[in-house]
Simulated scan of single mutants.
Amino acid sequence: MKHIDMNSLLEEHKTKLQWIGGQHAKIKQIKNILNGKSADSAMFFAIEGIWAHQKLMKTNIEMDSFLFCPECIYSEEAFHLVEKSLKKAKNVFIISKKVMEKISQEDKLDGLVSIGLLPHHKIEFLKLKKHPVIVVLDGLEQAGNIGTIIRTCDGAGVDAIFICNKKAKLTNPKLIKASMGGVFTVPIIEFSNVTACINWLSKHNFHIYLADTRANRTYKQHEYSGNIALVIGSERYGISKEWYNYPHQQLLIPMHGICDSLNVGIATAVIVYEIKMQKDGSVL
Rank of each mutant, 00 (worst) to 15 (best):
H3R: 14
H24N: 10
A25M: 04
K26R: 14
K26T: 15
L34V: 08
K37W: 02
S38N: 09
S38E: 11
A42S: 13
A46Y: 02
I47E: 02
I50Q: 13
I50R: 14
K58I: 01
M63F: 04
M63A: 09
P70G: 10
P70K: 10
Y74R: 14
F79Q: 03
L81Y: 05
V82Q: 03
E83V: 14
A89H: 05
V92K: 11
F93V: 11
V99M: 05
V99A: 12
D110L: 03
D110W: 11
G111Y: 02
S114A: 15
S114P: 03
I115Q: 07
I115P: 06
L118C: 05
H120M: 08
F125R: 13
K127T: 14
K130Y: 04
V135L: 04
V135S: 00
L137N: 02
A143H: 06
I146L: 09
D154K: 13
A156G: 00
A160T: 09
C164T: 15
K167A: 12
A168T: 15
L170C: 11
P173I: 01
K177T: 07
S179R: 04
S179N: 04
S179F: 04
G182C: 05
G182H: 04
F184R: 09
E190R: 03
F191K: 06
W200E: 05
K203V: 06
H204Q: 06
N205V: 04
F206I: 10
Y209L: 07
Y209M: 04
A215N: 01
A215R: 04
A215I: 02
E223K: 15
G226P: 03
I228A: 08
L230Q: 05
L230H: 07
V231D: 00
G233P: 00
E235L: 12
Y237F: 15
I239L: 07
S240R: 09
S240Q: 10
E242D: 13
Y244K: 15
Q249N: 13
P254Q: 08
I258P: 05
C259P: 00
S261F: 11
N263Y: 06
V264T: 10
A267Y: 04
M277Y: 14
Q278I: 11
G281D: 01
L284F: 13
L284W: 13
